[in-house]
């Protein structure tokens, strides 16, 4: 913004720096104090990894982590398939109800989580109540809220986000390439496996990582549909930090922060690596690669919008 840059550059730079401090200072404080010796308080007394060792013995945290990972893996596996199918239908086909379908797919993105949470609680308790009556199950063996209900809820919003991400990468793939493959005798199915899927693979992978993170981090919806049997990591941590003040919460927060940063950097690296490899193949003159549109040379797609 050179026209603006000549204006209040210093003020813009200072604000930007302060915003970064604002973003990272509280997180940095938590990370730092997860290595603090003192059990309570915000005074630095010395370095220790004691709280991480305690964490390794904390059965509740361990089983909640396991629950979270299990739920995230199952929800992501289903959501990746359903989301990719949705995006294929929306991007490669024209049909009358497309606009309505699009809006339905965006619903989980804009619906307030708290409303989804309570209405799912009402829905599940009604359905489970009816099922228990139908199967004649008493209080001892009744079907209750648990991991399956959490997975059902997570699959819905994960599917929507996967559809959004994959659709963005489908837009970069020229449908003509798929048509050529079919003209040369490939079936729809072969075309999908040999042409479409390899081309949109970075998008599918990015969608999967996003879905995994969203499922792992989700608090509000899970809070209402988990029931006592399926405590996930965020629910367990929330419970602990309301009950006690312990540096263990700092330690587990540090680990969650590190894990999501690694997931993000991994996702970006995959995207950057793929686009750089495709660029090289393009320049080398690989005909299959020439047929595809020129890949983005930079890792983050938003930076491509600059026009010369």
């Amino acid at each position: 913004m050179s026209a603006l840059r000549r204006g209040p550059t210093a003020a813009i730079g200072t604000t930007a720096a302060l915003v970064y401090v604002f973003f990272y200072l509280p997180v940095f404080v938590v990370v730092m104090f997860s290595f603090n010796e003192a059990r309570t308080g915000g005074r630095w007394t010395g370095f220790t990894t004691h709280w991480y060792a305690r964490l390794a013995d904390n059965e509740q945290i361990k089983s909640a982590t396991l629950n979270s990972i299990l739920i995230a893996v199952v929800a992501t596996a289903i959501a990746v398939v359903f989301g990719t199918m949705l995006s294929l239908a929306l991007d490669r086909h024209v049909f009358r109800a497309r606009r309505a379908v699009e809006q339905a797919v965006y619903l989980p993105v804009i619906a307030p989580e708290i409303v989804t949470g309570v209405s799912l609680l009402a829905f599940f308790s009604l359905v489970l109540g009816q099922l228990n009556d139908l199967l004649g199950r008493g209080t001892a063996d009744a079907l209750r809220l648990g991991r399956p209900t959490v997975v059902i809820a997570h699959v819905a919003f994960c599917t929507a986000f996967v559809a959004l991400v994959v659709r963005a990468s489908l837009r970069n793939l020229d449908p003509a390439v798929e048509e050529v493959a079919q003209d040369l005798g490939a079936s729809k199915w072969t075309t999908f496996w040999r042409i479409t899927l390899p081309s949109i693979a970075p998008g599918v992978l990015g969608g999967a990582l996003l879905s995994f993170t969203l499922s792992l981090d989700n608090f509000v919806i899970t809070f209402f549909v988990a029931g006592p049997g399926a405590t996930t990591l965020p629910i367990e941590v929330f419970g602990q930090l309301r009950r006690t003040i312990s540096p263990e919460v700092n330690a587990v927060s540090t680990l969650i922060f590190a894990a999501s940063t690694l997931l993000l950097v991994g996702a970006l690296a995959i995207q950057a690596g793929t686009s750089r490899r495709r660029l090289r193949q393009f320049r080398r003159g690989d005909p299959a690669e020439r047929a595809k549109p020129l890949p983005d040379p930079q890792p983050i797609s938003q930076t491509q919008r600059e026009e010369t």
């Binding site: 973003f23 990272y24 997180v27 938590v30 993170t213 792992l216 981090d217 608090f219 965020p234 941590v237 929330f238 927060s253 969650i256 922060f257 999501s260 940063t261 997931l263 993000l264």
Partner: peptide, 8 residues
């Protein structure tokens, strides 16, 4: 921060 858990 966009990707980090809201709870954390």
């Amino acid at each position: 921060p966009f990707w980090t858990s809201m709870l954390v």
